[in-house]
């Protein structure tokens, strides 16, 4: 078991670029200007890089949200942060601000976190179940706003928004991937830097406070960092749900350790998970790829219900 998962993961990453509608011979990829060369370097590899880092970022964000809001079901998606980013991005599409899509995605995410924060401070003792309800209310509000944007948009914009909300890992070349790679690595480094504080926060807020942790500062820094990162990821790939929910839980079950010890495994396996989901999406034999968000949601929806039921008992 100890070696099985890492080896399997590496195998998935290595095989992934070679499987798809157009099979690729390993010997052809280094011949410049060949079709294989273009597909491998310009399409498949960037796509796998995007899949890996998006998954890694979302998984780590989920782990951090679960720890900071101390609820196994709070992730940037269940609390509406990703919906906020989606709305911001759709706003940018409809009003022709295509160069600022990422910025608006980020603003949408931030807006949600600020709303959540101001509401949390009014709830005594971080009542996280109420926070989840706030997240649901926010999501409803955002989907209503998204409807308004649909209403205002023309046909091609509507189509663009719909495709966007399904989630997609389509990228051409590595140019667009750098903000994503950078933000996911920075988020990981930040989380590792705050590892000890996170461990104390996992006992209780009061205990962390009494043990000399600047609770408010750590919380604020990490939540803002997660929001920025999720904003960047969502503006690039669209909302890809449930990665941040499923993977941290599975990792916790396998490792039987607390979140501060699972930062790197969650990061890595969430990345691999999305690469695998993408591999499935690309190879189901349909004429075009199934949107990645559909695959993760099909897996994640039932898992979420399972968690709800298990939490009750």
């Amino acid at each position: 078991m100890r070696y099985l998962f890492p080896l399997l993961s590496i195998a998935i990453i290595l095989i992934a670029p070679f499987l798809g509608q157009i099979p690729i011979e390993i010997s052809q990829i280094n011949i410049p200007n060949s079709m294989e060369h273009t597909i491998f370097w310009k399409i498949r590899l960037p796509r796998i890089v995007v899949a890996f880092f998006t998954g890694a970022l979302l998984g780590l964000s989920g782990l951090l949200f679960q720890s900071l809001f101390r609820n196994p079901m709070s992730t940037p998606f269940t609390l509406g942060v990703a919906s906020g980013a989606t709305l911001g991005t759709a706003f940018a599409i409809v009003f022709g601000l295509t160069s600022m899509v990422a910025l608006f995605g980020f603003l949408g995410a931030m807006m949600t976190v600020i709303t959540l924060f101001s509401i949390t401070s009014r709830l005594s003792g971080y009542e996280t179940n109420s926070l989840l309800l706030v997240g649901i209310a926010l999501s409803f509000f955002y989907s209503a706003s998204l409807m308004v944007l649909f209403y205002l948009s023309d046909e091609s914009q509507s189509y663009e928004i719909i495709r966007f909300t399904m989630g997609s890992l389509d990228v051409v070349g590595f140019g667009d991937t750098f903000p994503l790679i950078l933000s996911s690595i920075l988020l990981l480094l930040l989380a590792i830097y705050y590892k000890d504080a996170i461990r104390l926060l996992l006992t209780s807020y009061d205990n962390a406070f009494l043990k000399g942790i600047e609770v408010k500062r750590v919380n604020t820094v990490l939540l803002i960092a997660v929001s920025i990162a999720v904003g960047i990821a969502v503006s690039l790939t669209g909302p890809i749900g449930f990665v941040g929910l499923i993977i941290p839980h599975i990792i916790k079950n396998i490792y039987q350790q607390s979140a501060d010890r699972l930062l790197i495994p969650t990061f890595f396996y969430s990345g691999v998970f999305l690469v695998l989901c993408d591999l499935i999406a690309r190879n189901l034999g349909t004429s075009s790829d199934i949107p990645i968000g559909v695959i993760t949601s099909f897996l994640g929806g039932p898992f979420f219900v399972y968690l709800l039921i298990r939490q009750k008992t």
Binding site: S67, R199, L202, T203, S204, D206, Q256, Q257, S258, A259
Partner: peptide, 16 residues
């Protein structure tokens, strides 16, 4: 009061 189920008594005391 403790949120995380994987923190043992020993780990809690080490943190303290």
């Amino acid at each position: 009061e403790i949120f995380d189920a994987y923190i043992t008594v020993k780990a809690y005391l080490e943190l303290s």
